[in-house]
Design a protein around this nucleic acid. Structure first.
Length: 558
RNA sequence: GCGAGCGUAGUGUAGUGGUUAUCACCGGGCGUUGCCAACGCCUGAACCCGGGUUCGAGUCCCGGCGCUCGCACCA
């Protein structure tokens, strides 16, 4: 076992023992890919979520929403997840052997993998291939299997097929009309949510790195592709970003330089990379163990046109923890196609466009009865004519038949149309955060092993912004009223919104400091005999163990 | 999913078919102690689950579950 593996085991052990991260359902033997955040970890996670939300709310044009995790089949079919994440299975009615429907139809379609569920279903019915196992020709209805957790919505045969969402993003897209209205129909704007995502991984590995149920935080930022955004990169001017391009070349440069040189292909992607850096470093990720890596063309997800991952180095090597993807108009367009509803924004022209129309159209009252079913085709042909055409005219239909269009079938169209703007599908830039993976690396980077009096000593140097407990209140001894005063102080702390205090009166004072250090409590307040006389206390700082004496009412959090 | 290794208190472990399962840290109580895992006494806590072999299984065999690693898969 390597030195790092041994450290990893000690860290895991401490996280379990201190109630930070624990295997879920351990009582029943555990469940792969599922973790509990314990009495310390639960607060840690929710604080991190809040810091994340606050960080993006600061942009001023971003709102928080929350969408269901249970998602109808059609939504994820439109988004491409059914095709990308699933295989379609059908079961032989005779021998009960399950087969992949696309594999059965390989000889009957050039690319059955690309077919939708209903197309595949009808092709299966039409071809009705033999079962490779027993040669029967009796297939069940096909069903989607695999990486998404499938669930019926509603009971029995009236149930509708659905999935647990594999990402939170689709909720932002399906909410687009409400978001557009909320933001007074003005781009750019963003919507975000933190929540659970589910992927029924074949083989979850590496602790918190690949989970079956995981916490994600995603922002969908809608922009006008024709507008060049003005972003201020000055706050990152002095920072050298480590950027690995799609070919694996490493560039070290300032962010604005990477954008100007088109290494980062869109300035909004660039500015989100900067903000992502700020967030991660702010919650305690070591900036020297962080890099951005651009996806190669063949690595890009089905929806993305450019993607930068943030990779963080830790006990498992470099792990992707954030993806910042330019999704183009992929998602909104896909949902438009699937539903027929408009998911567009309007762009006003600087100068209205004046369009002169001078041509022909059919006179429905005469042409309709005359051409019947062909009237539609005739209309299209007539409307393509120049103004100079003389009727009657012979026209040829698509099936080769010829018709004569007489003057009474048509009328002249002459008008001036003023177009003040146009509708377009917004583009989307998406920073997507894997909260569990980030949390893991925060713990990994905060975990420090030292020695104290010849004994190994461990602590979590967590950032104050996410420390699950803000202060520990410790009576030096639980007697002579020290316990009472300490408990009162603890209660007073807990009354204060957002402040979490821990009362600990068990064991020697040194042991209590050590336990506080292990869960990353930044500050301990100790009540001693003197406190009873003059209401002063000792404030002990986690990182350097320094002590200062303060009056209770001068404590920094009051 | 395939292959290999592993599974003993909260944590880390000892245990080569035969008493009441070892040790340390750990948790709790009492005492003591004037501020960094102190000390004393008391106390709590485990053989992953299910079958089998055997007079007897933590130990051997089989199956399941879980963990780790490799292959495959993977935003």
């Amino acid at each position: 076992m390597s030195k790092d593996d041994a450290r990893l085991e000690r860290l895991h052990g401490m996280l379990r023992q201190r109630g930070i991260l624990l295997p879920a359902f351990d009582l029943y033997g555990g469940a792969k890919g599922l973790y509990d955040f314990g009495p310390i970890g639960g607060r840690l996670r929710s604080k991190m979520n809040q810091v994340w939300l606050d960080h993006w709310l600061a942009l001023g044009n971003v709102t928080e929403i929350s969408c269901p995790t249970v998602t109808p089949y059609e939504v994820l079919e439109a988004s491409g997840h059914v095709g990308e994440f699933s295989d379609f299975m059908t079961v032989c009615g005779q021998c009960n052997e399950a087969s992949r429907a696309d594999t059965l139809l390989e000889n009957h379609h050039p690319n059955p993998d690309a077919l939708s569920k209903s197309e595949l279903q009808s092709l299966l019915k039409e071809v009705n291939p033999e079962c490779p196992n027993c040669s029967a020709q009796n297939w069940s209805e096909i069903s989607a299997e695999n990486l998404m957790f499938s669930t019926p919505i509603g009971a029995g045969s009236s149930g509708r097929q659905g999935f647990m969402r594999p990402e939170t993003a689709q909720g932002m897209f399906t909410s687009f009309p409400a978001l557009y209205r909320h933001f007074r129909e003005r781009l750019p704007f963003g919507a975000m949510q933190v929540g659970k995502g589910y992927r029924n991984e074949i083989s979850p590995r590496q602790g918190m790195i690949r989970l079956r149920e995981f916490n994600m935080a995603e922002l969908e930022y809608f922009i006008d592709p024709n507008q060049t955004p003005e972003h201020d990169f000055s706050s990152w001017a002095a920072i050298e970003f480590r950027l690995v391009d799609g070919e694996g070349n490493v560039h070290t440069m300032a962010l604005d330089q990477a954008v100007t040189s088109n290494l980062i292909r869109h300035p909004t992607v660039g500015v989100f990379m900067g903000r992502t850096y700020d967030f991660l470093v702010g919650i305690g990720i070591d900036s020297s163990r962080l890099r951005f890596r651009q996806h190669a063309a063949d690595e890009m997800a089905h929806y993305a046109s450019d993607c930068w991952d943030v990779e963080i180095d830790g006990s498992y090597g470099w792990i992707e923890c954030v993806g910042i993807a330019h999704r183009g108009c992929y998602d909104l367009e896909a949902h438009e196609k699937a539903t027929g509803k408009s998911l567009r924004a309007r762009r006003e022209f600087i100068e209205p466009k004046i369009v002169e129309i001078d041509g022909w159209t059919i006179d429905g009252g005469a042409a309709g009865p005359a051409f019947r079913a062909d009237a539609g085709q005739v209309k299209a042909i007539v409307e393509s004519f120049e103004a100079e055409v003389q009727f009657p005219v012979d026209v040829t239909l698509s099936d080769g038949r010829s018709l004569t269009v007489k003057p009474e079938h048509v009328k002249r169209v002459q008008k001036t149309v003023k177009e003040t703007g146009e509708w377009f599908i917004p583009h989307v830039v998406e920073p997507a955060f894997g909260i569990d993976r980030i949390l893991w690396h925060v713990l990994d980077h905060a975990y420090e092993e030292t020695e104290k009096g010849g004994e190994p000593y461990r602590m979590l140097k967590l950032s104050n912004s996410i420390a699950p407990i803000d202060v520990a209140i410790l009576p030096l001894f639980e007697k002579d009223g020290m316990d009472k005063l300490a408990y009162e102080l603890h209660q007073r702390c807990c009354q204060k919104a957002g402040l979490v205090s821990l009362y600990d009166g068990s064991g020697s004072i040194g042991k209590r400091y050590a336990r506080a250090d292990e869960v990353g409590i930044p500050m301990c307040v100790t009540i001693d005999h003197q406190s009873l006389e003059d209401r002063t206390v000792t404030v002990r700082n986690r990182d350097d163990a320094t002590q200062t004496r303060l009056s209770i009412d001068d404590l920094p959090f009051f």
